[in-house]
Structures are given as C-alpha cells and as structure tokens.
Simulated scan of single mutants.
Amino acid sequence: MSIAISADKSMLDIPMIHRYLSEQSYWAKNIPLETVERSIENSLCFGVYSESRQVGFARVITDCATFAYLADVFVLPEYRKKGLSKQLLAFIREYPALQGLRRWMLGTADAHGLYRKFDFSGLAHPERLMEISVPNIYQQ
C-alpha cells in the first residue's frame, strides 16, 4: 500500500472529513459542515492518502511558536491496524513549523498508548489548567 501524508489543504476531502467527524467520531457527533470548514481554514491540517484517496486526517491548532493542540485525529476504519496513525503522528511531530514548541496538548478517550509513543503524557500540573466545556454542543 502506497501512503502519502501532506499538509496541503487543497488535497483534503472535506466532505469525507465532515462525514467521519459528524457520523463516526465520539467527540464531534453532528458537527455542522460549516464548523468543520472553519476549523480546517484556521488550523494546520494533515491528510493521509492511499493511492489518491484520503484515508486519514489530523489538525493542529497552533501559533507555530510556543503551543500546539492536536485535534480530530482519525484513520478510516478499513485502513486501521496498518501503522497509518503512527506515520501520521511522526510526520506531524517532525513537521518544520512545529519544532521548538513549549507545549503540546490533546484530548483522547481511548488512544493514550498511541500518543505516549510520541512523548505525550498525563498533565504534569493538572491543577494549573482550566477549561470551558460544552458537551454535546452539536447535538443541541
């Protein structure tokens, strides 16, 4: 299987990304297409391609100087267990614009083992972090 990973937004299959996020993800159920489009427009995005078909995605919300938040990481179900998520994360962690950052963050319910392989860990000082959380915002 020939795999390519790119940060070229013009290659992204936005309808597929929206379909996955709104129908299959646990974190963005029912997310509107307009919200996905705006999130892509304002993030550094990465597509995983097999033969010219997009089969994975991730985006990084960043200032490219001090901070990055990794979000919306997925590989389509039929392409899982082939090492694609590891290739995607390695590509992102080595991406030139994302070097020298002071902090990376992400949220996950079930992929802690994967992210630990790329130096993510539990919060060193959870008492310092706060959040505003609006669960199920897209289902209202």
Rank of each mutant, 00 (worst) to 15 (best):
L98E: 08
A90T: 10
L89M: 15
I132H: 07
N30P: 12
Q24M: 07
G83M: 03
S121V: 13
A109Y: 11
A109T: 07
L106S: 00
K29Q: 02
F67T: 05
A28D: 03
A58L: 09
I61P: 05
I14G: 03
R116W: 08
L33S: 07
N42L: 11
S50M: 10
R19D: 09
F67I: 05
E131P: 02
A65R: 11
Y95S: 08
D72K: 12
Y69V: 01
T108K: 00
A58T: 04
R102P: 08
E23Q: 15
S22K: 13
Q54T: 08
S25E: 04
C64Q: 12
E127Q: 11
K82V: 10
W27L: 00
E23G: 10
P32Q: 00
V134L: 15
F120D: 04
R80H: 01
Y20E: 02
F118L: 12
I5A: 13
S39V: 09
S50F: 06
Q54E: 12
E37G: 04
L76R: 02
S6I: 01
N136M: 14
S10A: 13
E37L: 09
C64T: 12
V55S: 08
K82P: 01
F91A: 05
L70F: 09
G122W: 07
A97Q: 13
S85D: 03
A111D: 02
